[in-house]
Each structure stands twice: as C-alpha cells, then as structure tokens.
Simulated assay, not measured.
Amino acid sequence: MRLIDQGHEVSVGYMTNGSMAVHDEDVVNRLSFMRHFMKTFELKEDKIEEFSVKIKSFFQSKDSSTIDLPEVVEIKSLIRKREAQSAYRFCGVDDDNAYFLDLPFYKTGKAQKNPISDEDIKRVKELILEIKPHQIFVAGDKADPHGTHQKCLEIFRSAFQELIDENQKWVEDCWIWQYRGAWLEWPIDEIEMAVPLSPDEVAKKRSAIFKHESQKNGGVFPGDDARAFWERAEDRNRKTAELYNQLGLPEYQAAEAFKRLRF
C-alpha cells in the first residue's frame, strides 16, 4: 500500500492457487449460498442441488488421507482467488496488474506437493520478464509447515537465475526483497530494510488480511501457533518495532522487515 500511495506501479503475482489452505466447511458454505441464491431469484437450481449433494457426500466420507475431488480443488481455488482479488483491490492494485500463475507443483490435492518442474519455472520467468520490475518482494518463509513457501522461493530463484544467465541487463538494477508472514521474523542482525508502520497503516494491513475470509480464524496448516494469521503478523511487526526502539531508534507502532536476496 505504501508503494501505491507513493505513485509506483505495483503488480502482484500469485504462484499457487492456495486450494490446500481452504477448509472443507468453506466449500459447503459457498455451495449453500449458491443454492439459496438461485432459489431466491428463481433460477434453475437442479444442477447445483445435484452438485452440492455430491460434494457433501464426499466430505462425509473423507478422512485425512483422502485427496480432494478435482471439483473441490477448483472451488477452493476460486475461493482463494476471489479473496485475493478483494485484498489487492483494497490495497489499490488494478486487476490488470494481478497475475494468477497456478503453478503445477502445487496441484496435487494433498499436502505433499509435486517436484518442481520446468513449467513451474517457465511461468514465473515469463511473468518477471513481462513486467521487468525494479523491485521484487518474495516470501522468505521457510518455516511454514506445508513447505509451499520454500518451493515457491526455489522456483523464483531458478527463474531469476535463468534471466541472469541470459544476460538480461535490466536484472542488474532489480532488487529482490524477502519478507515473512505468519511464521518467524528475521533475526534483527539480518534485517536490511525496515519500513515503519503507523497505527493507520497497521489497521489497513489488518483489513487487507481480513479480505482472506477463509484464513481469518485459523488456517488448515497453522503449525504449532494457535493464533490467527493476522494476530501473528501484527505481533511480529510490533515486536520488530520494539526491538529497534530498544536499539535507540524512534518509537513506532510496528515495522515490516525485509532481507535482500542476492544472486
């Protein structure tokens, strides 16, 4: 939001469809809404009723080892995409500057992902090449319990390295910053850029996080931390600001920390 407020052109790239992070209950709720919506406005509902029964029956027989049906994966993907759209629009990003890459490695329907493929790297590389950004912000969370962020970072590194190997001159002026989200913060001695946040900016960030309704009250893969993701993010930002204040810097409500990724 800070970059947009300053007049910069900001693009957002979503590497995975995020379907594994959606609870089954969210799917049932969306289907229930659709059924009642169609009934209220007297739209044809025979297909949605049949479809809802099929999905509910699947969930009733599902256990921890069951792989989601392709239809379920698609619904969960749509939920995450709509939430992402709501969030980036709230932050001021245009639809034309949002990209959903839907990388193949993620699309297994289970916690264990596929090996990274050439297609994964190709899609990320093409997006970077299309935008040719001056700065890139990429998730540096390696502590996430499902390992998705780690694989996304590996894919990004491979894609960017290919651009370097191709002697793309613009990459020499492209700075890459790693951020962290719901898990561990960077050690204070590893932080290379810290952005102070005012109380209003903290509130705006929380509102943007809340746009991801399926994640608001606890994720499918929360790890060992019982707090909601937004609480973790705010606590992390607040503690970072407190550390800098203890080191003699001005007091701020919060601070977002970044570590540069070098090649």
Rank of each mutant, 00 (worst) to 15 (best):
D5A: 13
H8T: 08
E9D: 14
Y14C: 07
S19V: 00
V22T: 03
M34I: 07
F37L: 14
M38F: 14
F51M: 02
S52T: 15
S52R: 06
E71M: 01
V73A: 00
E83P: 04
E83R: 07
A98G: 09
Y99R: 10
L101W: 08
L103D: 07
L103E: 06
F105D: 01
T108M: 09
G109M: 03
A111Y: 00
P115Y: 06
P115M: 01
V124L: 15
K125R: 15
I128K: 00
Q135S: 10
A139E: 06
G140Y: 03
G140I: 02
A143H: 08
A143T: 11
D144W: 05
P145I: 02
P145C: 05
K151V: 01
C152M: 11
S158T: 11
Q161G: 04
I164S: 10
D165K: 13
N167D: 15
K169W: 05
D173P: 02
C174Y: 01
I176P: 00
R180F: 02
G181A: 11
P187W: 06
P187D: 10
I188M: 12
E190K: 14
V195Q: 11
S198E: 09
D200E: 15
A203N: 13
I209W: 07
K211P: 03
G218S: 09
G223P: 08
R232D: 04
R232Y: 05
T240I: 14
E242I: 08
L243S: 15
P250D: 04
E251V: 12
E256W: 02
A257T: 15
F258H: 01
